[in-house]
């Protein structure tokens, strides 16, 4: 029987994968993907809790998070295109003009 604990463990794993990905990956597109994984970890937790509590609040929040995440990626991709056009790179380590 798959219960709340299983969902939460999976969600925590997804969150950790996203977090580690953001810290280790250097390509902007991969970083944006990892951010999506983190958001979806939270979505999974919301849905699992909504099922456990038997109310719909959590599921409603998930719809909002999905929409906001889509907007986030749109802005992120626009900036990635700027990077590719102006600086000819998608590697975040190569983009560092701002240093003390």
């Amino acid at each position: 029987m798959i219960g709340l604990a299983h969902y939460l463990v999976l969600s925590a794993l997804l969150f950790a994968i996203g977090l580690i990905g953001i810290m280790t990956r250097r390509n902007v597109l991969m970083i944006l993907l990892c951010i999506e994984i983190m958001f979806n970890a939270a979505n999974l937790a919301f849905v699992a809790f909504a099922k456990a509590w038997g109310n719909l609040d959590g599921q409603v929040v998930v719809f909002f998070i999905i929409t906001v995440a889509a907007a986030e990626v749109t802005v992120g991709l626009a900036i990635a295109i700027l990077l590719a056009r102006q600086l000819k790179t998608l590697n975040v380590d190569e983009v560092s003009f701002l240093k003390w």
């Binding site: 969150f15 958001f39 970890a41 939270a42 937790a45 919301f46 809790f49 929040v61 998070i65």
Partner: peptide, 18 residues
């Protein structure tokens, strides 16, 4: 934001409401 939404999910799981 990722931290924020995950924290929100945990608080929701604790209280049953946002």
């Amino acid at each position: 934001s990722g931290f924020l939404v995950y924290g929100m999910a945990l608080l929701y799981g604790f209280a049953g409401s946002t």
